[in-house]
């Protein structure tokens, strides 16, 4: 499980912006250098490497955007300065959502439902109709293999009880210190 530092999505966003501008520049540069020569331009090693650099930069930007989206989803329900237990619970919850293949919308609804919010409240927070929330919940329970909110919570709490908050090796080291 990746320990994601949620403090600086702004930095990642700035990086994406700068790289997008650079990628656009390199792409323009390669296209205008190559255009008079057509495909034979790529006999020039220098130009070919520049083209590869431009494309890999674009790919990098696309991956970073996907990462940023996943990061923001992950931290949407996380409060700052959480207790060790709350943090662990959040991680367990996220890991289950990922394994159940919940869609981004379902992840958000599931997070709110675990917090104890009513369908009306969730609809208000998401800008959706209540019917939409109900169908999200139905899909979530089905994917999780549970019958309703109660059993969803038991499933998550069971996992929390069984997973040590501090890994076993660390605990032994602490006792010996």
């Amino acid at each position: 499980m990746i320990r994601i530092n949620a403090d600086k999505p702004g930095l990642l966003l700035a990086l994406i912006a700068v790289q997008t501008f650079c990628a656009a520049f390199f792409l323009w540069d390669v296209m205008s250098d190559a255009f008079p020569y057509g495909l034979s331009a790529f006999n020039n090693l220098h130009l070919t490497i520049e083209a590869i650099a431009a494309f890999s930069l674009i790919l990098a930007v696309l991956f970073e955007i996907r990462y940023l989206m996943a990061l923001l989803r992950h931290t949407a329900h996380l409060k700052r300065q959480v207790s060790l237990a709350a943090g662990a619970f959040h991680e367990i919850m996220q890991e289950h959502f990922r394994r159940w293949n919940l869609t981004p919308a379902e992840q958000d609804v599931a997070g709110f439902t675990v917090k104890g919010m009513s369908i009306t409240e969730i609809a208000g927070l998401r800008g959706s109709a209540e019917g939409t929330i109900k169908s999200h919940l139905s899909s979530i329970y089905h994917k999780a293999g549970v019958t309703g909110r109660g059993t969803l919570l038991s499933l998550l709490i069971d996992d929390l009880v069984e997973t040590p908050l501090v890994p076993a090796d660390e605990e032994r080291a602490q006792h010996q210190a």
Binding site: P9, G10, L13, L68, M69, L72, A76, T103, A105, G127
Partner: peptide, 18 residues
């Protein structure tokens, strides 16, 4: 401001409609 920008991107990431 930065908070508003990230807020909008968060809404898009979580598929909230604002």
């Amino acid at each position: 401001n930065r908070k508003q920008v990230i807020g909008q991107i968060s809404d898009i990431a979580t598929r909230r409609r604002s």
